[in-house]
Design a protein around this nucleic acid. Structure first.
Length: 556
RNA sequence: UGGGAGAUGGUGCAAUGGUAGCACGACUGACUCUGGAUCAGUUAAUCAAGGUUCGAAUCCUUGUCUCCCAGCCA
């Protein structure tokens, strides 16, 4: 991961550094990460997490985890548990500072009463439709509700009775009295409370009125002593309201700063649409390895380090961005290249028989676990007369520049001998079912001096191989911007998951779920939790860069 | 056509009046018992037009384009 000191400071860190240098905020930075517990965290949240938690890490201070649970009809405990797990996995710690906006409901209520007393809020009887009609449009001012000038006493009485449950859902709201003619629609008497006779995941049936985001968020920030309330660009229009609410009370005033959210090609961040993918069975769940959710990426085999590195490289700005998924994959490969042990696995098996190798003989050959890290040592891999190789590593009529096995051609078997193809066996349909070879006993750990062997292929000895289910993933969507297509579901990639039955070397027999490996020459894989004793399941995390594949593509 | 924000290589981020740089991608080549990794190199950008200035991505003017806002969602 990049050194924080070497990174160019983004505009937020520049602002904070200047403020601190000027003696503001008492020299410490307090931020908050405020998820709504109505879905799972995704890669976009990872960026926000890195910004929110990264700032106090750099300047001193802390980041609170506060659940923004002000809407009981959408929120569930299942989500809060999952969100906490994902944040910890990514590597961030909120210490003792776990909060819920619902913890502040009483204080929020008391402050609302104060606003009513000050003539700055009123109870409105307009229906939702009427409220919309009164709000005006982007170009026309709104008009005042007929209830806008109720007396303080009447407002106090009505608000207390709203809380007491005397009124049905949707019949009354508490509104801030600001300016129905404001060019900023957020300031046209925004709703502060609505009536919802619904059980809340934490407060149960204690409340039947719930605060709106704008009212709850800034006041919650203030209660927690937050200095910098970092959020995405769409809240820029809300900042005047955020400021207005905290200024009406003699309380601490945090600074809201907005930055552009993360977008990545071939996926989407909409929680609503991701939920739909889950509900429609397009994916197997929130943690399906094709999902951009943190739990999906985790199951896929992504490392938290690679995700943090990615968010570092993406930067923080105010410009709309669409990051190419290749950058994420690059960060992943770079990380895994250093730490993933190498093993051999054959995804699409083709039988090879070495005619001059004794039947029944098995040799234990030495293989290096990671050429990038000698400390990872070596292991033994069994070699025998019958092997599995990759179907793609043999061609009966090879094109030029094909360095693998073909009739009459020689190839190095990784960590083993050089073999030469002597012929093939075909079935009744003319398909190749077996490749016949001879091996050169002098080439174990040594290269021949009379000829140059360009190709090396991986293999698994048939009699000691372990069968495995291997799940190969591709982008969930065929379009780089699936969100921008009218019918986004039409962009779902029908081939985003392919299951193959392959063979892995015996050292993997007891591989534990979550373990990550490089299958030499094919990619990085991790053991899926679906793995049971004797039934190995691997997910392809990401393929290796494939220069040959590129050449093939170019030449048709 | 109200308000807010933003425009730098294909993508993302820097340069805050003084040589437009870094990363990913793409393309060459070297090396290699992974067609991986690594190494070397190439490609390619300041939204437009005026103005200020010795000098402008940066300052001024005008224009263009993009995004966000009319939930009792967050």
């Amino acid at each position: 991961m990049s050194d924080p000191e070497s990174r160019a400071p983004d505009f937020i860190r520049t602002i904070v550094a200047e403020e601190l240098a000027a003696g503001k905020w008492g020299g410490k930075v307090i931020t908050r990460f405020p998820p709504e517990p109505n879905g799972y965290l995704h890669i976009g949240h990872a960026k926000a997490l890195c910004v929110d938690f990264g700032l106090p890490l750099e300047f001193g201070g802390r980041c609170n985890l506060r659940f923004d649970d002000t809407n009981p009809t959408k929120e569930e405990t299942e989500y809060v548990e999952a969100i906490m797990q994902d944040i910890r996995w990514l590597g961030f710690d909120w210490g003792e500072h776990l909060y819920f906006a619902s913890d502040y409901f009483e204080q929020l209520y008391q402050w609302a009463v104060q606003l009513i007393k000050d003539g700055k809020a009123y109870v409105d009887d307009l229906t939702a439709d009427e409220t919309r009609e009164h709000r005006g449009t982007l170009t026309e001012a709104g008009k005042a509700s007929p209830y806008r000038n109720r007396s303080v006493e009447e407002n106090l009485d009505l608000f207390a009775r709203m809380r007491a449950g005397e009124f049905a859902d949707g019949t009354k709201t508490l509104r801030a009295k600001i300016d129905m003619a404001s060019p900023n629609i957020n300031l046209r008497d925004p709703v502060m409370y609505r009536i919802r006779h619904a059980a809340h995941h934490r407060t149960g049936d204690k409340w039947c009125i719930y605060p709106m985001y704008d009212w709850a968020h800034g006041q919650s920030d203030s209660i927690e002593g937050v200095t910098h309330s970092l959020c995405s660009m769409e809240y820029e229009d809300h900042r005047p309201l955020y400021d207005w609410f905290v200024e009406q009370l003699p309380i601490h005033h945090p600074r809201q700063i907005e930055f552009a959210r993360l977008n990545v090609t071939y996926t989407m961040m909409s929680k609503r649409k991701l939920l739909q993918l889950v509900n429609d069975g397009v994916v197997a769940g929130w943690d399906d390895p094709r999902m951009p959710t943190l739990c999906g990426l985790r199951r896929r085999g992504y490392t938290p380090e690679s995700i943090r590195d990615f968010t570092d490289r993406v930067g923080v700005g105010k410009t709309y961005n669409l990051i190419q998924i290749e950058l994420l994959e690059h960060c992943l490969r770079e990380d895994l290249n250093k730490r993933a042990p190498r093993v051999m696995a054959v995804l699409r098996p083709l039988k090879v028989v070495i005619e001059n190798y004794p039947e029944g003989k098995v040799e234990e050959l030495d293989a290096v676990n990671n050429p990038e890290d000698a400390a990872m040592g070596t292991r033994k891999v069994p070699f025998a007369r019958e092997l599995w190789i990759e179907q793609a590593d043999f061609m009966e009529n090879p094109p030029k520049k094909y360095f693998r096995l073909a009739p009459g051609a020689e190839v190095r078997l990784r960590w083993a001998y050089i073999v030469k193809c002597t012929g093939v066996v075909k079935n009744a349909r003319g398909e190749i079912v077996e490749v016949r070879c001879t091996y050169d006993p002098a080439t174990l750990g040594a290269n021949p001096t009379d000829r140059k062997i360009k190709g090396t292929i991986h293999w698994v000895a048939a009699q000691t191989a372990r069968p495995a289910e291997i799940r190969l993933y591709d982008h969930l969507f065929v379009s780089p911007k699936p969100d921008e297509v009218e019918d986004w579901k039409s962009q779902i990639n029908p081939n985003s998951l392919e299951r193959v039955s392959g063979y892995v070397e015996p050292s993997l027999a007891d591989a534990a779920p979550g373990n990550r490996y490089q299958f030499e020459r094919t990619g990085y894989f991790c053991v899926d939790p679906d793995t049971k004793p004797g039934n190995l399941v691997f997910n392809r995390t990401v393929s290796l860069r494939d220069t040959w594949g590129k050449i093939e593509k170019q030449e048709g």
